[in-house]
């Protein structure tokens, strides 16, 4: 698609107060055209409040924001025409069928009934719901409802897509489907995607850039890689055959790294750009005649980043799904 289309989101010192309570306390960021921007934060951090201002559902108390060059306050109608929105609560009538919902949605954007039906078929195909188009939405699974909601948000071919926690409450398989879909939409259609999430893994996997919001302020911003390199703790882990080797290795290597930690027969070396340091570390170990049993690298995670910038703990235990692997859910430390 053409490059002239403005698909940026520009947010300048956005503030939202409800009475004495400030939900968003002066947030600024810029999302480039065609980017997937991850807006990461725990429950109550101000994510949904920001989305509701950007999608014209509520007014900022102070500050200003534009979506695709249109002001969210004074040009709300234009913003609605170019923005697709899938809110946290899936807004679909359980008594209706997918085909009916999509047709009406397309019609409201000015398509004729026939055009709208054609478009509805395309969208059902896109989110792989064609086989269920005549089933009432109330009978859909959670994942199917999200996919339909995504299709509804895409009805008018938005330039900018807002997804507010698109995978919260989904099982791992449905979650992966949505991720795949989001990536596909971004690469094929070139649309800007503003994605809020409380899952670190999600932001890490999908987003080109991330902003971490906590207590209504942006705590950190950058690419996942940069954030991890800057704030995370990479480590080289060396395992030896005996405790004595570990002690000797530590004495030899401590000056090369930021911090060391001994864990049984394993020596952990904390440093940035760990991968680059591996040859030097190995050389030094060999030069003093120590024998390595294994060497592993630990990449920093966004969990580390979040902990660093917010000082809050990440809880991994009460994730809504059986969390396999590294999925973690952020929660305020109690």
């Amino acid at each position: 698609m053409s490059n002239q289309v403005n698909r940026e989101i520009v947010v300048e010192n956005l503030i939202k107060r409800y009475g004495d309570f400030a939900a968003v306390k002066g947030v600024s960021f810029k999302v480039e055209s065609g980017e997937i921007f991850g807006f990461l934060g725990p429950n109550g951090a101000g994510k949904s409040t920001t989305v509701s201002m950007l999608t014209t559902l509520s007014l900022p108390t102070e500050g200003r924001a534009t979506v695709g060059g249109y002001d969210v306050v004074s040009q709300a109608a234009e913003v609605r025409r170019i923005a697709g929105v899938a809110l946290q609560e899936v807004g679909i009538d359980p008594l209706m069928k997918a085909m009916e919902l999509l047709t009406i949605q397309c019609q409201t954007f000015g398509m004729s009934r026939k055009q709208a039906q054609g478009r509805a078929h395309e969208l059902l195909d896109l989110v792989k719901l064609s086989a269920f188009m005549d089933r009432r939405v109330g009978k859909y699974s959670g994942g199917m409802r999200r996919r339909l909601d995504l299709a509804l948000a895409l009805a008018h071919e938005p330039e900018v897509l807002f997804l507010d926690e698109p995978t919260t409450g989904l099982d791992p398989a449905s979650r992966r489907d949505i991720w795949e879909e989001v990536r596909r939409l971004n690469t094929r259609l070139g649309i800007t995607i503003f994605l809020t999430t409380q899952y670190l893994e999600e932001a890490d996997l999908l987003a080109n850039r991330i902003a971490i919001i906590n207590n209504g302020v942006i705590a950190a911003e950058g690419t996942p890689q940069a954030l991890k390199a800057q704030l995370g703790s990479e480590s080289i882990n060396l395992t030896f055959g005996d405790a004595d080797s570990v002690t000797r290795a530590e004495a030899e290597l401590a000056e090369m790294v930021e911090r060391t930690q001994v864990d049984h027969h394993t020596l952990r070396l904390y440093l940035s750009h760990a991968a680059n340091a591996v040859p030097a570390v190995v050389n030094r170990v060999q030069s003093v005649g120590l024998v390595l049993q294994s060497l592993t690298l630990t990449q920093p995670t966004l969990d580390d980043v979040f902990l660093k910038v917010t000082g809050e703990r990440l809880e991994t235990k009460d994730a809504p799904q059986p969390a396999k692997g590294s999925r973690s859910r952020m929660a305020r430390a109690s």
Binding site: R81, F109, G110, M111, Q115, G118, R119, E157, R188, L189
Partner: peptide, 21 residues
Amino acid sequence: MSVITTSALGMAAKGERTARM
């Protein structure tokens, strides 16, 4: 390649952006 980008209907949808019901 993509269902949407190559679709004539999709294009129509874009052209109709200013259309009102």
